[in-house]
Write a protein that binds this DNA or RNA. Structure first.
Lengths: 167, 167
DNA sequence: AAAAAGTTTCATTAATTTTTGAAAGTTTAA
DNA sequence: TTAAACTTTCAAAAATTAATGAAACTTTTT
């Protein structure tokens, strides 16, 4: 396989992965492209490489910047804006995890907490509901905390945890 | 909030969460409904509760069974099929993680490995590409292994890991 | 073996999501 | 202050994904 083919394959794969994870395909593709580009790219560059419109490029770049995983760069003496991706992969994972927690897990936890407070001395059905949603709350809450721990620090989390448990 | 309202809210929330994670809304809603039902439900029950068609119900139930998180049940003396959800939440998480790894992460790893083998003595661009995709392969690979470790066993993984590290 | 009770499939329709492109908006330079 | 260079927005169109429902299929009962 030569470079061009590999590059295109990478962009397609990253895009497909993105859509399976609830991120739109173009957004993931732009991110993939920027990740493997040694230099920051202009909007024109991106449009041309991915064959997408200006509007589409603009909106998805904005989303990527909202996620904190793509940055604007200005080249001295140039008016055009250039874009580059977070280059540290651990940092990338950290930001994605943090953002998904904030946007999805936290709101879900709020709902779960809320609905598990129903008075359940009525029916069997209500008792079971309350038990199940409480259990789910605990689980999701634990998972979220763990995710936070794993991603909050750049340093090795396991080591820290062990030290903490042993002292 | 009384029971009916809470139940409906739970089903909506779980459905929304599903679609953010690449699972179709109805599938997640059926799963939510079965999770909070103390008894197994028939297709009729599900159709009625969620206001969806027979075909839709049938296909999404099949998907849920393919994921291994919903089961068919037969009641003695009854011809109808009943459905129930995996009731252990740890087990549920385990199965989802395993399935997503198999369907999404593993294929991505294969592609990453494949494309990072290009001969990169040509351009700066190709050198950077090779380095980046290799780095990504290592990261995803590590993450997948960790996920496997966390979910492979029902027992507390942390404890085991610590014990292993200390001996 | 035919009817009854139930389930699955899949072409068509509906809903949702994404993309386009042209107009409006900004900023810089002359 | 106005023209040029560039970016953003958003209504409409296109593409994708999900849902319907009727016909086909399966299994059980009589």
């Amino acid at each position: 396989m030569e470079f061009k083919e590999a590059k295109s394959k990478f962009i397609q794969t990253w895009g497909a992965l993105g859509s399976q994870w609830g991120i739109n395909k173009t957004m993931a593709q732009i991110h993939a492209l920027l990740m493997v580009s040694p230099e920051a790219l202009s909007m024109e560059d991106i449009m041309e490489e991915l064959h997408i419109s200006r509007g589409n490029t603009s909106m998805n770049l904005r989303s990527l910047m909202d996620w904190g995983i793509v940055f604007k760069e200005y080249k001295p003496g140039e008016r055009k804006e250039y874009f580059s991706a977070e280059s540290n992969i651990d940092e990338l994972a950290r930001k994605i995890a943090k953002e998904r927690s904030r946007r999805e897990i936290k709101p879900t936890l709020r709902v779960l907490k809320d609905i598990s407070t129903i008075e359940a001395n009525e029916s069997n059905e209500a008792v079971h509901f309350k038990a199940k949603t409480e259990e789910l709350y605990d689980f999701v809450s634990r998972a979220d905390t763990m995710l936070e721990k794993v991603t909050e620090h750049k340093e090795n989390w396991i080591t820290k945890t062990i030290v903490k448990l042993m002292t």
